[in-house]
Design a protein around this nucleic acid. Sequence first.
RNA 1: AGCGGGGUAGGGUAGCCAGGAAAUCCCGACGGGCCCAUAACCCGUAGACCAAUGGUUCAAAUCCAUUCCCCGCUACCA
Length: 712
Amino acid sequence: MKEKIYIGVAWPYANGSLHLGHIAGCYLPADIFARYSRMKGKDVLMVSGSDEHGTPITITADKEKTTPQVIVDRYHKEHIQNMKQMGISFDLFTRTTTKNHEKLVQDIFLTLYKKGHIYKKSIEAFYCNNCNRFLPDRYIEGNCPNCGSQNARGDQCDECGKLLDPQDLLNVKCKICGSTPEIRNSDHLFFALSKFEDKLLSWIKDKKHWKPSVLKFTKNWLENGLQDRAITRDMEWGTKVPIEGFDDKRIYVWFDAVIGYLSASKEWSDKQGKPDQWEKWWKDPKALHYYFLAKDNIPFHTLIWPSILMGYNDKLNLAYDIPANEYLRLKGEQFSKSRGIAIWVPDIIKNFDVDAVRYYLSINMPENKDTDWLWDDFVAKNNDELVGAYGNFVHRVVTFTQKNFGKIPKLSTLDKLDKEALEKIKETSKEISGYLDKFEFKKGLRTAMTLAQFGNFYFDQKQPWVLVKNDKEACGSVLHICLKIIKALSVFMVPFLPFSSDKIWCLLGEKGSIHDKTWDVAFDDLQTGFELESPQPLFKKLDIKDIIETEEDPFSKVDLRVAKVIDVKDHPEADKLYMLHLDLGKLGKRVIVAGMKPYYTPEEITGKSIVVVVNLKPVKIRGVTSNGMLLAAEDSKGVVALLNPGDSIPGSKVVVKGVAKKPASVLEFEDFKKIKLVVDEFGKATYNKKVLCAEKTDVISDKPVEKGAKIL
RNA sequence: AGCGGGGUAGGGUAGCCAGGAAAUCCCGACGGGCCCAUAACCCGUAGACCAAUGGUUCAAAUCCAUUCCCCGCUACCA
């Protein structure tokens, strides 16, 4: 019987589009491994689906004045399409809002409850009278009881990484309105994670093959001790709690989502018309389970999900390996849905060949550390490696053969280099297998590319364009060997570049789809005598100029104005902040918050003219809304100086010569940060060496600061 | 400011956990060759005091300490 391999891939949240960070972080590595494993004759079951419950989705729905269902339908549909387009070969990509999933979640929930792994406890939950609701974890902040950090969220402390329950937090505030929520009693259900510590420890013991980062992370958690976690929430969107008295509560999203790994397997079985089929993957101890996810997801897969499974049914298989990846960053900034910094899958698919994208993501995969998506590097690797080395080898060989022979010529006597070439194919196969077995995808792809380079070398050494004139048989033999290399390459590239591999397969006159074949067809004989067609190049060159959108000067988006300080008050909730009341002339009066207290007294500031960013997105700082930001310079010695626009009229513009003004209606702080302003040697404020001009005078620093002092 | 991840040839990387003679690979640059191929391909050359300083050691890119810089997250940054 075929070896069974189960591949679970982290469930994308149905609250936004997929970006390349998702693809590079888990879907592509999972797919590479799945395609490879299938070709190695394994019986692969790879599942995932949209994670559709949880508070953020209800918030999006509120914002759009629609229902959560509408939101998740939209993104689930998009996810399915994107996965297909990216060639991620799921056996099933489902969702957490199916009946099947609900049934299993409730069954697991009830079973754990009956076994005593879930227990009821009345807890004091935070209720915000102002917002009129129980506050979800992420909308509470306070001090971490473990490390004392002030920035702990309700569910996790980002400082020490500890998982928290909201009621553990000290000095709590509602993150939505900033008011102090009141404590109300509420019954909730808890999962007894702490009871699984010993079992987890012994389970982890033989996991020496795990990536060091995954193992270390997991061990750290276990050493700190696991805490029972509340797994119900006060909300209406989610899986219903199958226990009396919890009608107004729902099962917490993380508990619900991981169960998808099992429910999806069952759904797949049902769809095969063999409802027990899933057991072959889940109950046969020889079936190995792999989970692909990014680093933020590790504890859920190494601790929580295994505990649920252990508690539910100890016959079910636990993870064999969890090769978690790091992050892919865009120009050094992490891909992030919430901040809108991303390359979205729907966009990239429109503009580029999927295999080109897969090539760059694979060769640049964040296996052991964060890597960057760099557009010019993408273009370079596409043009010089994918097109230049691999694509060109295929193209030059097939074109040459087609022109001179019309069909695949036969092999004749072999010399030393010929034998070396045939041997090289076998070596490459072994080497790639060795890497892919260890999830070293970058090295695997690099090895395949080395074979393409060898092919070019071989072709060049043999000079078939000379041979064709004086020894046609020898020439045919050389081409035959080149085509064998190409055939092998098409197989070795399947995990990485599935679309082009299939094209080559077709090109060589092979029957059926390469995706139904096994790895060893790489060594099979060619269809000698097959009539070749004149091929189209496999990959296209890219031009960086087509990609880089003519970016506007970031300075043009900012709206800088002269403001007169009318009044300065201490911020009621902060030590270092002032609230400045400003006169902006025609633009009226407004209040901004500024951290000037350590540097200026209220008397010093009152009456001054300063420079203010007026179109910055308003933000609450310690509960007070700031409608803008003043500009001040700070040098390397920590001297801070306001900017002085002379005696210009309040509300008048501050500009730089040569930069047209197209202020954004609302400027994101991210965009503002891109504008690098410094003080020059004359104490003048400059942008790109151009002086900032107020109505009558240049803008200068209010007191002496070093040359090069940064303005923020 | 706190926490995390980094700093290796022009760019991107491997090696670092388990220290050892000439530091990996890809691209680019330069020189040459070839002319079959998407101005592609092949061969060769140059290019790194492995961020800095100090320490441990017979021996350090690799271990320890301190500093500087970059990136990310977080924040009484705005």
